[in-house]
Amino acid sequence: MSDAEGYLRDLRRALPVGCRRRFVAEVREHFESAVAAEAERGVGRADAERLTIERLGPAHVLAEQLLADMRSGVLGPVARLSAALTVTRIALAAVLALAVVVGVAVVSVRSSSKTPPPTVQRAPDAGVVHNGVLVRRLVLTLSTAVRQRGKRRALPSGYVVVPRVYYTQSR
């Protein structure tokens, strides 16, 4: 990337969307005119670009001059609004970035939790006596994995799926 392109890139980044296109195009044309004028004096393109940047001053200073005029209202209410929206846009981007970071952190914590899905319970260790009959819970261990919400999820060790028909009798 040439010095001029780097300068124009920095300028573009520093300006609000509303005035960026025209202003950058105008400064680009300034570079082309300056390079052409310096070429007539025998100066090469790279040196002409460096000289032009020196005369223009830093891109952020140039952008700040324009932004200051926009904020002050000298360039009209639309420009003032555009400058204000630039500040708002930066603030919104920061809030959005923070929200994304927090969201990713929450999802990460939840996915690493040891709590089993609600449809899965710990298998009973022994049967119970009900009306003098030993009732054992018939636990249908389908597998160590279960389909849930269309996704195959592995069950933690010691957990099984609770079937619809729960009980049987045995002596």
Partner: peptide, 11 residues
């Protein structure tokens, strides 16, 4: 300061 010319033209 050549950079100041363009903002001045805008004003």
């Amino acid at each position: 300061g050549e950079g100041s010319v363009y903002p001045a033209l805008r004003r």
